[in-house]
Amino acid sequence: QEELVKAFKALLKEEKFSSQGEIVAALQEQGFDNINQSKVSRMLTKFGAVRTRNAKMEMVYCLPAELGV
């Protein structure tokens, strides 16, 4: 569980995922086979993730800066 949270936060820091499906796929690539869209959705809510525009003006998920991840 701890490893999943770390990987999840690291992915969001990249600010390149525009959908929950993309986050699920990226986590599965890292070996988290039991991850699915509903789990990702709950984690996004739990950590207060928001959708914002990145440098390329794409809408992407990211974590609020005050979490200091």
Score class of each variant (00 low, 15 high):
1 Q>H: 13
2 E>R: 10
2 E>I: 12
3 E>Y: 09
3 E>V: 09
4 L>P: 01
4 L>Q: 02
4 L>E: 03
5 V>R: 09
5 V>A: 10
5 V>K: 08
7 A>P: 00
8 F>K: 00
8 F>C: 15
8 F>N: 00
8 F>G: 00
9 K>M: 14
10 A>Y: 07
10 A>Q: 13
10 A>R: 09
11 L>N: 01
11 L>T: 02
11 L>H: 02
12 L>N: 00
12 L>S: 00
15 E>F: 06
15 E>S: 07
16 K>Q: 07
16 K>L: 07
16 K>V: 07
17 F>W: 07
18 S>P: 04
19 S>K: 09
19 S>E: 08
19 S>T: 15
21 G>Y: 11
21 G>L: 14
21 G>Q: 14
22 E>V: 04
22 E>I: 03
22 E>S: 10
24 V>A: 08
25 A>M: 11
25 A>C: 08
25 A>W: 09
26 A>L: 05
26 A>Q: 07
27 L>P: 00
28 Q>V: 11
28 Q>D: 03
29 E>G: 10
29 E>F: 08
30 Q>I: 10
30 Q>Y: 07
33 D>R: 13
33 D>H: 13
34 N>D: 13
34 N>Q: 10
34 N>E: 10
34 N>V: 05
36 N>K: 06
36 N>F: 04
36 N>V: 05
37 Q>A: 12
38 S>C: 05
38 S>Y: 13
39 K>S: 11
39 K>I: 15
39 K>Y: 11
40 V>I: 08
40 V>E: 00
41 S>Y: 08
42 R>Q: 15
42 R>I: 13
42 R>E: 15
43 M>K: 00
44 L>H: 00
45 T>R: 14
45 T>A: 12
45 T>W: 09
46 K>F: 15
47 F>S: 05
47 F>A: 07
47 F>K: 01
48 G>L: 04
49 A>K: 02
49 A>I: 05
50 V>T: 09
50 V>S: 07
50 V>I: 12
50 V>N: 05
52 T>L: 10
55 A>K: 08
57 M>S: 10
58 E>A: 05
58 E>C: 02
59 M>N: 05
59 M>L: 15
59 M>A: 05
59 M>S: 06
60 V>A: 04
60 V>E: 02
62 C>P: 01
62 C>A: 14
64 P>D: 04
64 P>R: 05
64 P>W: 03
65 A>Q: 12
65 A>G: 12
65 A>W: 09
65 A>S: 14
66 E>N: 10
67 L>W: 05
67 L>N: 13
68 G>P: 15
68 G>A: 10
68 G>W: 04
69 V>D: 15
69 V>I: 09
